[in-house]
Amino acid sequence: MSLDTETPERARPEPIQAVPVRHPGRWLAVAVIGVLVAMFVHMLVTNKAFNWSFMIDEMFRPPIMAGLRGTIALTICSMLIGITLGIVIAIMRLSENPILRGVSWVYTWFFRAVPRLVLALLFGNLGILWSRIEFGLPFDRQIGALFGVQDFEARLFGFSAMDLLTGFVAGMLALGLSEAAYMAEIVRAGIQSVDEGQTEAAQALGLTRGQIMRRIVLPQAMRVIIPPTGNETIAMLKDTALVAFIPVSTELFFQLKAVGARTFQLFPMYVAACLWYLVLTSVLLVGQYYLERHFSKGVGRSGRAKVKLRGIVAETGGGASKADA
């Protein structure tokens, strides 16, 4: 092209017409895969164990749909807890206060070390520790005893553990608290990706640390935080199946399993679970695709992309602060 412009009097050369490289391997692969797919489809159609008509009948029934709603609600609630608490723990981790740093380290260590299934079962059985959960002056009985008062109690309000730690709440806590440990790492990476100069400029203007975090650092960290948060949300959606073992009854997998157990048709119901999670995850994947496309645009210097990026940052920033409040 540069030759062209330098010497315009010379004729443009013929387009290259070469024999392209052949790829016999590709055709072989296509043939092998084609046969395998045909075998698989044949099995799906002919194997009676799939019991398709039964499965399709069952998988849209009201209890299953209620379970579906429960799963979606559980995903959203756990992610909200995870993100909010994750931001708090990340900020603690980056704080100058060694005690806060230590606490956040221990928190992350614990919740990353224990499997989620174990956590879920543990939280589901916390009722064994306390029959009632009450709020008030800590160590009130001991303080009362110190002053010679028998059975002194200073409690403001309380719940029966059975009421508070319903399966749903227990599951939500187990998943949300464990998610916070992972989100904390993501948020920390996001915060550390923001240039030090941003904080300094804000400090020089007289902003306080909290203001700098909320208005300057976190909105910029979002670009780094959002894509992995999408992954976490998808992972969370799948992990909600774990709470079926607490057990939580308003949950998709529990309901499908229950139908399977009742009708002695477990396998078709597991296939139904497969399909439902595929559908839910695909919806999230589409959402994540558009979100990431928005954010990758902002990396360049193109102006319009920056404007769009700001829109998202403002939205997500607002969402996070709403969750904070």
Binding site: D195, G197, Q198, E200, A201, A202, Q203, A204, L205, G206, L207, T208, R209, I216, P219, Q220, K306, L309, R310, V313
Partner: peptide, 25 residues
């Protein structure tokens, strides 16, 4: 305290070599 330092900084403007504008605004 941090708040008092921030209050003092309000009356001192600073301009940096690398501008340090807030890119999201």
């Amino acid at each position: 305290r941090e708040k008092e330092v921030a209050a003092q900084r309000r009356s001192i403007g600073m301009v940096f070599q690398r501008f340090n504008l807030f890119p999201h605004m």
